[in-house]
């Protein structure tokens, strides 16, 4: 049985508006990590929000395995921390709201912040932290509820390269250590190939192409230097530009509808 089953999904933000997603179907099996890749404005974020239930589909259906649906977590594109709560209090927020605040959860919050290198910052407010630190707090907040699946919306886009690489490795480590499954939105081809067992390439017409990524045995930053990795990135780059060329030939949908 698949973990996520998307069937003929469609989304328009208002009647008559351009379809952001159209007739999209795919399945994700358990233990498979998925990267949503595509140019900006292709509906990656919308798809992720649909999966989380933050938006309702206009047509089609999304089915998430019941054992996963109860344990989902979401990381927004920006850290979205509560400014008047300290680092630690921000991480504890989900537990308070879910009524699951107990000593064990408290220890888990401390552990997570320790793993993310934020020991020194527990009692600092978000305004006192750098962008990278804020994002790590947001990641800890998403993980403190012990989710089975995490949806991440370009979480590392605003980070500097070194921090981004560290965060990517951290995510992979959490995946293997906590058996964490994730859906990761990105517009970076290399990031998608590095993090995804599978990549869903979305284009601006609202449809998608699904390719299985090569199953790398060991993933670390050195992998990015190997010919095999670069060959996969090459393939996706080619697909990406083919897709954009095809789009350029196509009459833009937005004008079609508005006319």
């Amino acid at each position: 049985m698949s973990a996520i089953d998307v069937n003929q999904l469609g989304k328009r933000f208002s009647a008559g508006a351009r379809a952001v997603i159209e007739d999209l179907s795919f399945q994700v099996s358990p233990d498979e990590t998925l990267c949503l890749l595509g140019p900006s404005g292709c509906g990656k974020t919308t798809l992720l929000r649909l999966l989380m239930g933050l938006e309702q589909p206009t047509s089609g259906s999304i089915r998430i395995a019941p054992e996963l649906a109860q344990h989902m977590s979401y990381v927004f594109q920006e850290p979205r921390l509560v400014p008047w709560r300290t680092c630690l209090e921000n991480v504890l927020l989900p537990l308070q709201l879910l009524g699951r605040k107990n000593p064990a959860a408290n220890t888990r919050a401390h552990d997570l912040l320790h793993q993310l290198g934020l020991d020194e910052r527990l009692h600092h407010f978000p305004g006192e932290l750098s962008g990278g630190m804020q994002m790590r707090v947001a990641l800890a907040r998403a993980l403190v509820t012990e989710p089975r699946i995490v949806l991440l919306d370009e979480p590392f886009a605003a980070l500097d390269e070194r921090t981004r690489f560290r965060m990517q490795d951290l995510l992979l480590e959490l995946k293997s250590r906590l058996q964490l499954q994730y859906v990761f939105v990105t517009h970076s081809i290399a990031e998608a190939v590095y993090l995804g067992d599978r990549i869903l390439l979305l284009d601006r017409t609202g449809s998608a192409r699904d390719w299985r990524a090569i199953d790398f045995q060991e993933r670390d930053q050195l992998l990015k230097l190997t010919p095999a990795f670069n060959a996969v990135v090459q393939v996706y780059s080619q697909l990406f530009s083919d897709m954009e060329r095809a789009e350029a030939l196509h009459v833009p949908r937005a004008t079609e509808v508005r006319a």
Binding site: M52, F76, E78, L97, L98
Partner: peptide, 24 residues
């Protein structure tokens, strides 16, 4: 509205929403 959406992820009660988000 962004923070409201964040809170919504954790299905807060109306009281939690008022005391933990809206009043602050």
């Amino acid at each position: 509205p962004h923070l409201k959406e964040l809170f919504r992820l954790y299905r807060p009660s109306p009281w939690q929403l008022i005391f933990k988000l809206q009043i602050p």
